[in-house]
């Protein structure tokens, strides 16, 4: 029968020669192999000090966006919650009152916005569904925690820092990845 590939190798079942039965040469060969690994480059990244660069399409923890004046973009339309395949997002809408124009960009806003990070699968469909550029997936991991209820992130956890009051943190939260517009 003809072999389909030439990957198969004939096993050598010949009895071992005297040198082979001594085992010491092959042990020595093995030791040379392990010794050569002393000089190999180590692939480990010293994690907390150094971090592996994320790929440009990395999807991490969600962030709720503000515009340049620090007003929240979200209008609580619920499209992200509908798009979410894991049903991790819940929200409650409220109407913007007079005098709250500096807080919320449009007349309707999310009074409550919660993402259950234990359910979230970080697929990024919420980001795609959002018509207002209000939700993004950032470059951070979900930090570990001790209790389940602490994985339900509310608005204070999710909102991006204020761009005017806290510009450094805002820049940091934006990350250094290219904006979605430039990617498309």
């Amino acid at each position: 029968m003809q072999a389909l590939t030439n990957k198969s190798k004939q096993v050598n079942r010949a009895p071992m020669s005297f040198i082979e039965r001594l085992y010491l040469p092959s042990i020595f060969k093995g030791m040379l192999i392990t010794f050569s690994h002393i000089f190999k480059k180590k692939p480990t990244i010293n994690y907390p000090e150094k971090q592996r660069p994320f790929s440009p399409v990395f999807r991490g923890l969600q962030i709720l966006n503000r515009d340049e004046e620090g007003r929240e973009n979200c209008t609580a339309c619920g499209l992200c919650a509908v798009a979410c395949p894991a049903e991790a997002i819940t929200m409650e809408a409220a109407e913007r009152q007079n005098g709250e124009e500096h807080l919320y960009k449009e007349e309707k806003y999310a009074a409550k916005y919660e993402i259950n990070m234990l359910r979230c699968i970080f697929c990024g469909l919420c980001e795609e569904a959002c018509p207002k550029d209000a939700i993004y997936l950032s470059e951070t991991f979900t930090p570990a925690d001790y209790q389940r209820k602490q994985f339900i992130y509310n608005k204070t956890d999710l909102l991006i820092p204020h761009p005017k009051e806290n510009p450094d943190a805002y820049e940091k939260a934006l990350g250094n990845r290219p904006k979605r517009e430039s990617v498309n």
Partner: peptide, 10 residues
């Protein structure tokens, strides 16, 4: 660690 291309306790 070194023989296995790791860093070991540091």
């Amino acid at each position: 660690a070194i023989l296995q291309d790791r860093r070991g306790p540091n």
